[in-house]
Computed example of a mutant assay.
Amino acid sequence: MKALAPGTVIFHRHRGYGVITAVNLLTGWISARFGTEARALDLNLSSDEVQFGDGEPILFRRAPPDRMPHARLMQMVRQLHRAGYQRLYLYSWPKPSGLHWRWHLFTGQREWLQRSWREGWYGSGADYNFNPVMGWGDSPGATTDELVHTLAKFDPQGLAQALGRDEDHARWFEEVCEALLPGYMYSLDMDPATAGQDAPALPIVPVRAGMPAYSGPELAWPPGWKGIWRKQHLLPAPKRNIITGMPEIPG
């Protein structure tokens, strides 16, 4: 399916040609403006017989689009690794609601929990549902090559920090991509219930609606995560006043 995003030209059998003004990839509802109408019309892609402007039908239920960008990001990172940018890492984790997954690209040191943040290198599936772009000047539905070139143009200094070798991580990432793409993504969410285990299974999530749960072999976590589950991650105990013995409350 072609990209569905604000600005896409569509055709409706009763109203003719129009332009999408808002889209929700999670529910399949869009708002579109037709001709000289002052108000946008709400339509359902599953039942309102909407087509792309060139006549191609929009089969939202039969061929649903990706509701999250993580698989496309994995393809891009995989290509950059093959080009020698092995110090590029993709962190994925769910929002507290569990409905959407965040993503974060970072470079340089492989510090998963203390990674550095660069503007434009992170996002959320909640935003992607309404405007399916990564946020660095890319277009909806951009190919892997186009994503690479727009990222390099957006932040060449940041991408330059990814140039270098990290063979362990690049080998792990290649194996994960081979097993999961194009329909699944990995999450690096650490379930508190797994504390004390040496290496619980890597969480796998489908990127499109209607896909079955992942049933392939268990995948390893990325290098640098081994042993992180062996102890509970608790906040440090507050300092106590040496005179009263009571915990000190920060000002």
Rank of each mutant, 00 (worst) to 15 (best):
T27A: 01
T107Q: 08
M76W: 01
P96D: 08
G135A: 11
E56P: 03
E174T: 10
A170T: 06
E218G: 11
L234G: 02
F106I: 11
T244N: 07
T21F: 11
S47I: 01
G123I: 03
P69E: 06
G35N: 06
P69S: 07
W225P: 04
R118W: 14
W136G: 04
I20Y: 01
G245P: 05
L113T: 12
R33V: 12
I204T: 04
H81A: 14
Y184P: 10
L90H: 03
L188V: 13
F106C: 06
Y91N: 10
L41G: 00
S92F: 01
L73N: 02
R230H: 05
G28D: 00
L45Q: 01
P217I: 09
D145H: 02
I249W: 09
P236C: 04
R230I: 02
E248H: 10
Q109G: 03
F11L: 13
F34D: 01
E178V: 07
Q232R: 14
N131Q: 13
Y89C: 02
L180V: 12
M1C: 04
L43D: 00
R15K: 14
G137P: 08
G245F: 05
R115Y: 13
A142E: 05
G84C: 14
Q161H: 14
W221P: 07
A22G: 10
L147Y: 02
L202N: 10
Y89F: 12
D127S: 12
M211W: 14
G137S: 10
A201Y: 07
I30D: 00
G53W: 02
T21P: 06
G183L: 15
Y128I: 02
A170V: 07
A199G: 06
L202F: 10
L188R: 15
R15D: 09
D66T: 03
L4T: 00
G183W: 09
S187W: 11
W93E: 05
F60S: 00
G164L: 15
L43K: 02
E218L: 13
A40K: 06
V148L: 04
I58L: 01
F52C: 01
L181R: 05
H169I: 04
E49W: 12
